[in-house]
Nucleic acid binder design. Structure first.
Lengths: 106, 106
DNA sequence: CGTAATACATCGTATCACGAGGTATATGAT
DNA sequence: ATCATATACCTCGTGATACGATGTATTACG
């Protein structure tokens, strides 16, 4: 998938991945893989950005003698998802425009 | 609309705006305004990028004693629109994932 | 005992949208 | 006449950011 199209979807996907229950870096990447592929360096950049924006909180916990950083969504994070749903209407309108222009030539 | 979401949509919107008939900078911005707002500096960057990628060709013509640069879509440009339509399926799948995760909490 | 998987992190690079600023002509209002 | 607005083009600098490359450390498996 085109990299440019992924932008803007990535943040909200990561938020969606931790919405139901707290998760950690490696698991988020695996959970998202069927929908959108992202590298570790990209994910950690996003997680830090979302933390700065107070859309998630971080907590370090031990698991099998190893430290994991668990990420939990905040109200602002949930709000971002709601906002995305509203933006979706605009994206749909753009999509229809592209398709409509297309039909003029068929 | 979120800037990141616009990326990836912009190129294909510009291509769609010149698909039916050749157009020029100022007109493209006005035609796209109902769907997506973009500044002149952004548009000219995109037009150059699309020209480099051979998705459109440029021709200068006089109109009312003033020079205009008309942009015409190429086969590769049309191919890009077709590609976008295929990518749309992936975007839809991502959208459904975000919505699905959402419902678990309602 | 070495290879893969898990799990974290940083740095540099390339891409890109946009604001700010610049040039020039035509049109309409004062 | 003059000034503002619209048309029409362009460049430069900046900030945001996705990702490959690279590094560290532990666990699991064959």
């Amino acid at each position: 998938m085109d990299m440019q199209l992924k932008r803007g979807l990535l943040d909200v996907c990561v938020l969606a991945a931790i919405r139901s229950e707290d998760s950690y870096g490696y698991k988020i990447i695996k959970d998202l893989k069927p929908y959108i592929v992202l590298s570790e360096s990209t994910l950690y950049t996003i997680l830090k950005r979302l933390e700065s924006a107070e859309m998630l909180t971080v907590r370090t916990a031990e698991h099998d003698g190893r430290l994991r950083k668990y990420y939990r969504i905040t109200d602002m994070g949930r709000h971002r998802i709601e906002e995305f749903k509203r933006e979706w209407a605009e994206i749909l309108s753009i999509y229809r425009f592209v398709i409509k222009e297309d039909e003029k030539n068929d």
